[in-house]
């Protein structure tokens, strides 16, 4: 095993890692927003909204991320890579996150909705102050899991040439004629990212448990 390429290409790996973090980070935030909206649509009494959300979720969950990525990338001429990457990942993850959030909302006791209503809170206040905080606590482990999957799957954006960690590692493999060692480094970096995330989620879970 020869890791001497690290001296020369460490800069590559740093840029790639930062891009991967940036891509996954924006997707987490946008996916959470998209997922919340979709889950509320799904629970909505307006049938059209519910149908739209169902079709969207079924389609996204039923097609490969790779296909979705290409579809987004080639949908418009001269689509910027980064936009395509973030958009495709967000479109994909919000469908999964929506299902997680919906399950979390449905697990909140019906009496909580009634108490909020009796206190004359409106819909928005009810969800913001009462329901979503409790739902979030229920779903945090599942959500953390989804974010870990998201970081790992982000490697796929390298196929459209986005300079994420995987792309950089592939570049190093080509330049150094070493097909194996750079992959070990990639695996190690991805592991550090996902492991710190799961530690962070664990920490948040403990903090949210203060009311128990």
């Amino acid at each position: 095993m020869d890791f001497s390429f690290l001296d020369k290409y460490a800069g590559f790996l740093v840029t790639g890692t930062l891009n991967t973090i940036l891509l996954s980070g924006s997707t987490v935030i946008l996916g959470l927003i998209g997922g919340t909206v979709l889950s509320l649509m799904k629970l909505s009494k307006v049938k059209v909204l519910e149908k739209c959300a169902n079709v969207y979720i079924a389609f996204i969950r039923g097609t490969p991320l790779l296909v979705q990525l290409y579809l987004v990338y080639y949908s418009v001429r001269e689509m910027p890579m980064y936009l395509a990457g973030i958009l495709a990942m967000t479109i994909n993850s919000s469908a999964y996150i929506a299902e997680i959030i919906r399950a979390g909302i449905e697990a909140v006791d019906k009496g909580q909705f009634e108490a909020a209503k009796a206190l004359s809170l409106n819909q928005v206040q009810t969800y913001r102050l009462i329901i979503l905080p409790q739902a979030l606590k229920n779903i945090l482990p599942a959500l953390g899991n989804e974010f870990i999957v998201l970081i790992k799957e982000s490697a796929i954006v390298s196929v459209i040439g986005l300079h994420d960690l995987m792309y950089k590692v592939d570049t190093i493999r080509g330049l150094t004629y070493k097909p194996f060692e750079p992959l070990i480094v990639a695996a190690a970096i991805y592991f550090v990212l996902t492991y710190s995330l799961s530690k962070g989620v664990g920490h948040m879970e403990r903090r949210l448990k203060t009311s128990d």
């Binding site: 009496g111 909580q112 009634e114 108490a115 009462i130 905080p133 409790q134 606590k137 009311s211």
Partner: peptide, 8 residues
Amino acid sequence: QFNLFPHK
């Protein structure tokens, strides 16, 4: 069943 808000 009281229905207090447990997170507050």
